[in-house]
Design a protein around this nucleic acid. Structure first.
Length: 364
DNA sequence: AACTTGCCTCGCAAAAGAGG
DNA sequence: CCTCTTTTGCGAGGCAAGTT
């Protein structure tokens, strides 16, 4: 077993976040295998209770069992507790599935059905139309090995799409969930502006340059040689690797260092605004919101505090905010986090959670 | 004897690769 | 361009050697 690149045994053992749905009062410690082990470079997790009664439990289920024991729960309450744990896990699984589906990755049947819904309404989706979606970027890459040019579309969220079928499936799914109107409008507007010849310029340019041709949301086009593109790509990969090994870079940049200073926060907000407007073409009037303080000691404080922007969507008749993070490796230098702030009608309060749904588990 | 620690395997899911 | 197959990655959980 090869040791993963960048593996550093000296950072272990270390505390890691407890898996979702486990009770408070426990710690998860990640340890690494010793140099003599076949699994050197791999790690494993052990759980211990803060009270010291349990040490080195090997799994989440064992933690649940021990928790019920320690709390002297009777059979019924224990079963209830386990049920709740399963429910939370299930919900998280569903959330992840929804996330995958929004990227076009779904089961065969669902995919075919979604594609059908789309095609019944609009016919097959074609490149020149996607090319005209407002705020999207189109990139043609020529690969000399296959003499083929493949196209990648980047949507306004920065998600890349390589297959028109994926887009059809996602749009079909959204139509089925009642978003038909906005999609219809986008498709119709784009179809009206679509121009086959203009689109064909992309593939031709990429082929002639034997490299990459890209047209951004604002209509600027650029050509890069293949080698140059490969270099950039490698650089990006490396950066992402470094970013990945570090805990949330944005927090280090301001939440930790300058949260206490009014001016620091102000600077961070302005920085986000600048990036949003210049790189992601948001209107300069975009509403930004700072979440900070008043939660010292809260486990998820580092995950919650930060700058949020007001989304176009509304939730429960009130604005919906999404957290922004600094990601220098991303092309815009900025990205949206999976953390939202919304109004909860049932609880009659603002809350921060991982998905804009009434039922999603919330931090506060 | 009971507990702690390190290691290994199994099974599933995601990613990569091969082929039509 | 798309689908099917293979490979890889990863968490859960058990086993066994070492400690107390």
């Amino acid at each position: 077993m090869a040791v993963p690149p960048g593996f550093d045994a000296s950072i272990f053992p270390r505390e890691v976040p407890m898996p979702l749905g486990l009770p408070a009062g426990w710690k998860a410690i990640e340890r690494s295998y010793g140099p003599s082990a076949k699994s050197y470079g791999m790690t494993y997790i052990r759980y211990s209770s803060d009270c010291g009664a349990y040490k080195q439990l090997g799994s989440a289920k064992a933690v649940i069992k021990a928790h019920c024991e320690a709390k002297k729960l009777n059979k019924k309450d224990s079963a209830e507790f386990i049920k709740e744990y399963d429910r939370v896990r299930e919900e998280d699984k569903k959330r992840k599935e929804t996330e995958r589906e929004s990227r076009g990755k779904m089961g065969v049947e669902k995919r075919e059905a979604s594609v059908q819904i789309f095609q019944d309404k609009f016919g097959p989706l074609v490149g020149p139309v996607v090319f005209c979606f407002p705020g999207w970027t189109t990139r043609w890459e020529y690969s000399p090995n296959s003499y083929q040019t493949h196209v990648t579309y980047t949507d306004t969220e920065g998600t890349e799409w390589k297959l028109l079928k994926d887009l059809e499936a996602v749009f079909g799914l959204r139509i089925a969930s009642g978003e038909g109107d906005s999609i219809s409008k986008m498709i119709q507007d784009a179809t009206a502006r679509a121009n086959k010849e203009e689109f064909a310029v992309g593939a031709r340019s990429a082929r002639e340059a034997e490299g990459v041709y890209e047209v951004t949301a604002t209509g600027e086009s650029s050509v890069r040689k293949r080698e140059e593109n490969l270099r950039n790509w490698r650089k990006k990969q490396k950066l992402e690797e470094i970013e990945g090994s570090r805990p949330s870079p944005d927090l280090l940049s301001w939440a930790d260092s300058s949260a206490s200073s009014e001016a620091g926060v102000h600077l961070a907000v302005e920085e986000f605004r600048k990036l949003l407007c210049e790189r992601r073409k948001f209107p300069s009037s975009v509403d930004l919101l700072v979440v900070d303080g008043a939660m010292e000691g809260a486990t998820f404080a580092p995950r919650m505090r930060g700058v949020y922007y007001k989304m176009q969507e509304v939730f429960a008749d009130r604005p919906l905010y999404q957290r922004l993070v600094h990601v220098p490796a991303a092309h815009a230098g900025i990205a949206c986090d999976g953390v939202y702030m919304m109004w909860s009608a049932s609880k009659n309060r603002w809350q921060i959670a991982t998905a804009p749904e009434e039922s999603s588990p919330s931090f506060a």
